[in-house]
Simulated assay, not measured.
Amino acid sequence: MAKVIVFGSLNMDISVECDDFPKRGETITGGGLLMTPGGKGTCQAVECARMGADTFMVGKVGDDQYGRQIVAALTKHGVSPMNVSITRRAATGVALITRAKGDKTIVTDPGANYKMTYAEVRAAIHGLGQRGNIFLAQLGCDPDATFESIKCAKRNELYTVLNASPVQSLPLDLYPSLDLLCVNATECRSICGIAPMNDGSIKEAIDWFGERGVGSTVITLGSQGSATVIDGKLVKVPAYHVSVVDTTAAGDAYVGELVAHLAFDGTLEESMKYASAAAAICITRVGAQETMPRWDEVEEFVKMREQA
């Protein structure tokens, strides 16, 4: 089993549910307030750990109550926080989430996440990383630190994974350092200019990334499942259809399970199937970290659906 090293955001999620999203300048009444540890980095790390992977978090929190709660939650879920540091130069990152009609809007203040430096991540890679281990990153921390850290992990022969979210442009010299890129349809279009609307455009987009040096690309397509290219052929994995409660952490459940399954030497296509199951279970629950399913739940879910 490969070790999973996650460099990413550590946020406190403050979430409210309402009947519909407010219009500009409008004040509405909501309910169902939740304040839970979140952040794309921590959620994906928690999902990796819940799948049984040996998982280490790399990041930064503020010297405040939110930061202490987040670190405690990582430990509770089996993620090592030994490389999560504390800064007094910024508060812990916060995400403000509005939930309505099975969808959500999110505004984040990165706070301490942007104080994490490349030198600190490099030290963690050298201390934790061994050839064949997995380095997983997103785009919720300082971009330069993130890009240089991925290149460092690649030089040290780790298997590098980038979930390009929240979306932003990627430097051309980063692509050859990516063994696996995971994007949703919106992120894909924003980065490469190709909207993955059908089989032809999906393969065109994946090939676009491949031509620039990316080893493999997975595009998640919401209710349409996910897709990749293996040996030159388009491979599509269907989504599992469930009653949607909260989509906040669905993408993180998908990426976390995908990476964990790869850590246990699963094939990419098989890993995508189980990742789809993890995302489906996640969206039947409200919240972030606490919605991440365990391996036994994912395995039973897939078994039941295949027997149906």
Rank of each mutant, 00 (worst) to 15 (best):
K3H: 08
K3I: 09
V4W: 10
I5W: 07
V6W: 10
G8F: 14
S9K: 01
L10D: 04
N11W: 03
M12P: 04
S15I: 03
V16G: 02
V16I: 13
E17G: 12
C18M: 12
C18S: 12
D20E: 11
D20K: 10
F21L: 09
F21V: 06
F21M: 09
F21I: 07
F21G: 04
K23T: 04
K23D: 05
G25A: 07
T27R: 01
T27L: 00
T27Q: 03
T27N: 02
T27G: 02
I28N: 01
I28R: 00
T29V: 15
T29L: 14
G30W: 03
G32E: 00
G32A: 04
L33W: 02
L33C: 00
L33H: 01
M35D: 00
T36I: 09
G39H: 01
G39T: 04
K40I: 13
K40S: 12
C43R: 05
C43G: 14
C43N: 15
C43H: 11
Q44S: 13
Q44Y: 13
Q44M: 14
A45T: 08
V46T: 08
E47F: 04
A49R: 00
A49H: 02
A53V: 07
D54C: 08
D54V: 10
T55M: 08
F56L: 03
F56K: 01
M57C: 07
V58M: 02
G59P: 05
G59W: 09
K60Q: 13
K60D: 06
V61Y: 01
V61W: 01
G62K: 01
D63G: 03
D64V: 07
Y66C: 06
G67T: 03
G67C: 05
R68C: 06
Q69V: 10
Q69T: 12
Q69H: 08
Q69K: 11
I70T: 03
V71D: 07
A72I: 06
L74P: 05
K76N: 12
K76P: 00
G78N: 08
G78Y: 11
V79K: 04
V79G: 05
S80G: 06
S80I: 08
S80R: 04
M82G: 13
M82R: 15
M82C: 14
N83K: 14
V84F: 11
V84I: 12
T87I: 11
R88M: 13
A90E: 11
A91S: 13
A91G: 13
T92D: 06
T92E: 05
T92H: 07
A95G: 15
A95E: 06
I97G: 06
I97H: 04
T98R: 02
T98M: 12
R99S: 02
A100I: 07
A100L: 07
A100Y: 10
K101T: 04
G102L: 11
K104P: 00
T105N: 06
T105P: 02
I106R: 01
I106Q: 02
V107I: 14
V107K: 00
T108G: 05
G111L: 10
K115T: 15
K115Y: 13
M116C: 15
M116N: 11
Y118R: 06
Y118F: 15
A119P: 02
E120S: 14
E120G: 15
R122S: 15
A124F: 14
H126I: 14
G127K: 11
G127L: 12
